[in-house]
Every structure is written in structure tokens, then in C-alpha cells.
Design a protein around this nucleic acid. Sequence first.
RNA 1: GGCCCUAUCGUCUAAUGGUUAGGACAGCGGCUUUUCAAGCCGUUAACAGGAGUUCGAUUCUCCUUAGGGCUGCCA
Length: 419
Amino acid sequence: MVKVRFAPSPTGNLHIGSVRTALFNYLFARHHGGKFVLRIEDTDLERSRQEYTDDILSGLEWLSLSSAEPPVYQNSRRELHLEYVDKLLQEGRAYPDPEGSPAVFFRVPADGETVIHDLVKGDIVFQNKDFKDQVIRKSDGSATYNFAVVLDDALMGITHIIRGEDHISNTPKQIFLYNALGFALPQFAHIPMILGTDRSKLSKRHGATSINEYKKSGFLPEAIVNYLALLGWTPADGAELMSLAELCQKFDLDRVSKSNSIFDLEKLRWLNAQKLKNLSLETLQKAYPELDIEILKIIKDDLVLLTDVPEKAKVFTLPKIEYTDEQKTELKTDSAHQVFRELQEKIDIIYSGAIEEQYGKAQALIDDIVKNTGLKKGQVFHPLRVALTAQKSGPGLKFLLVLLGREKVKERIQNALGC
RNA sequence: GGCCCUAUCGUCUAAUGGUUAGGACAGCGGCUUUUCAAGCCGUUAACAGGAGUUCGAUUCUCCUUAGGGCUGCCA
């Protein structure tokens, strides 16, 4: 039975790189019908903060990567860790600090080699002589990271340790401890890092790193999950657009890449636009309940970010518009006035019946104006758009005529005629 | 410095001991559209370098180079 864990330390907000690690663990567990648990590594009392734990928990929940089980707080297992320090002390596998502090050192093997049979990287060999005895209990009386991690992973029955490759050099030290403690070794899988565009470790100076910033800027959790899954992994069938359920079904460690990858915001944005297109109108409406669902329908395929909605909806919702001087001269032409008067005369006929029917009548009216005035299409469409929206581009005119509503259309045409 | 990891288009990547080295994002061009997008079609672009193994290496081995990680009584 597969059991994996995601073990963040609550010393900062949920980082995009951590999310990828969490995701791979989650997908691996789900793919194999195993368990995914969370362990908050809050042993650094100085730097750990409750708000960061909250951020991590809510971030994972937003991404649908929550664990079914409540998180384990590493600090609550402090006494347990210390019992094992004593055990190693009694067995003579560890010794007190010769300098007299309360620290305890673990004796690492003097020679031979230690190999990690890594599920992603293959075998990695270390010479034991390169390691010096390691501290397992600090001067302040608490267990060190490498010791606590081994104990918790072993005691929690973790079968696969999937973590960033920045932990590779910790692994031999941990293997020494597994052996000394008599615990069976888990499987290790070290996944590559995510780098910034300059190939250095992804950090603040590359832009947003906290998942909350992405949420705030209008990225969908589905897009983030899909994008992060594709960073360092590809399914055998080459699919790119996948739901979380599909990812769970397809994911496995054997197709995880061995090399680092650079975070590409452009592709994330593209994926976000794709997910937005697939979003149901109902969901979109929940995010923007104040907007007419017909408006949302028209602008939906135009979105890259969820937060683009208000901007895109503006043409429909703005109560008043102002023309620039340049636009005014455009509206002043004889042909423009001819168009406006034609429209004014017949506009009333479109506002009845079902919405689709209204669109149809609006389009027919526009076509009619082109025919009646004998003007070129552009000479009709362009001034009309400017008159109605004070913009040079935007949604189709038939949508504008219908969704703006009779009053606004009439008022704006009247204003345009006054130019 | 020491130890470790990695190396295919600008980016994410696929594949293979013999291929026109494939896809996606971005770019570019076209179509479509009243416009901007979207969509559709097309297109530019890669096996880091050098030895070896082999009939044949992008693929296997070694070296070099480059990048990354670790090198805490942080996690």
C-alpha cells in the first residue's frame, strides 16, 4: 500500500515549487490507490508561523490537493524523536558532544559506499568516508531535521519519499539513520527543480512565487495544477490539457524528467485561457454574480485570466462613455450620421423575443443598413462601434446592440449625432 | 574548493543504435471575422563540444564545457 507525504515547513507562504512536489506526491498516491498525507515540519520554532501553516493548508485546498487525513505536526512528536536519540546513545551508535553541550552526534559508517536507488534519477553512489558524524540532537535539546524526518517517515509508514532534488545530499545521511534504527528503507524519488528564466532557483525576483499571488491575479487552480504537472512530466499519450482526474489516472514516476525546468508564465497563461474556455457559465457567474450571464457568455472565450472579466465586460456595463476629439471627428461625417439615423429609425424592432432571436434581428438590421446606405461595411461598422462604445475594437455589434439595451443604444446614438 | 545531479528548438518536452528528430507555448505568415481576440491552416527553430564502441550514434561509454543542488546544532 502506497503512502506518501508532503512535508512543508511553515516558514513562508506556499511556494509554486512546493506545490509541484505536493502535486507529484498527490498524483502518485491517487494513481496507485494509496494515501497522501501532510506533515507540517514546524520544528524551527523561531521561523515557523501559524499564518504560514494556514496559507499552506488553504492553498492546497484551493488546488484540490488536500489530504483526507489531518496534518501531522512534527513538533508534537518531539518527545518521540528524543526517545530514539536515547536509544542510539544506549546502543553506542551515538555519543554526547565531547565539548559538553547537550548535543548528540551519530556515528556514520567510516567506509564503504551508500547508494540511493532513486526512482527518477537511477542509482546514485556516495562514498561514506565523505560524511562526518552528524548531529541528531541539537544543543537546544531538540532533534535535527535529518533525524526527525527519518523517524517520522519510518514511523508513519511512508513507502515513497518524493521530494525535490535539493534533498539528494541529505539522503545518504538519512539512509545511515534508517539502517542504524533498524527501519526498512522507503523508495526515494528526487524530482528536478523549477528554475527562473535566468536558470537560477525560482525566487521572488522572477515574479510571483506564492500560490496566493497566482490566485489573486486570476489563475485557475486547474490551470496551475495542469501546468505544474507538465513541468517535469509528460503522459505517454502526449496529452497536454488534462483535468486533475486525468492526471491521477496517467501519472507515474517513470515518466518524470531528470532535468530541471524553467518556469514559463506564457504557457501557464495559455493553459489558463484554455481552462477558462472550459469553465461553465455557472461557475463564471459565481465569481461575478453582478454580471449578466449573457455578457459572460460573450466574453468568456476572450479571457486569459479570471480577473480579466470586469475589464472585458466594461463595454457592456459602463453607464456613460466619453468620445475623444479624434472619435468625435469620425462620428461627425455624413456617412456616419446617415448610419445613425437609419439605426435610430429601426432600432426598436430588435428588442423582443428570445435573446438569440434578438441577436439575429440585430444582425439583420445592421446588414440592412449596409444595403440601404450603400456604404462599405467598414463605414457602417466602425462609426457604430465608436458611437456605442468609444472603442475601436470589441465584441460583435449585434451583441452590443442587444446587451447594451434599447435605452443606452438610443442615448449613445443621439449623442453621436450631436457631435 | 569538495560531493552530487543534469544536458534535444527561445521555453516545456517526445522518440530512436539507422526517423524528413515529433508535439505544445511563444514567434512569424495566411485564412476567417465589421474590429481586437479566439479559432483554423501553414512556417522558422534543437540533438552543447571532443574522443571512443559500432557497419552506423542524438541515443551506449569516457572526457571537456555549461547549468543546477548540497556543503548549518534551517527545514
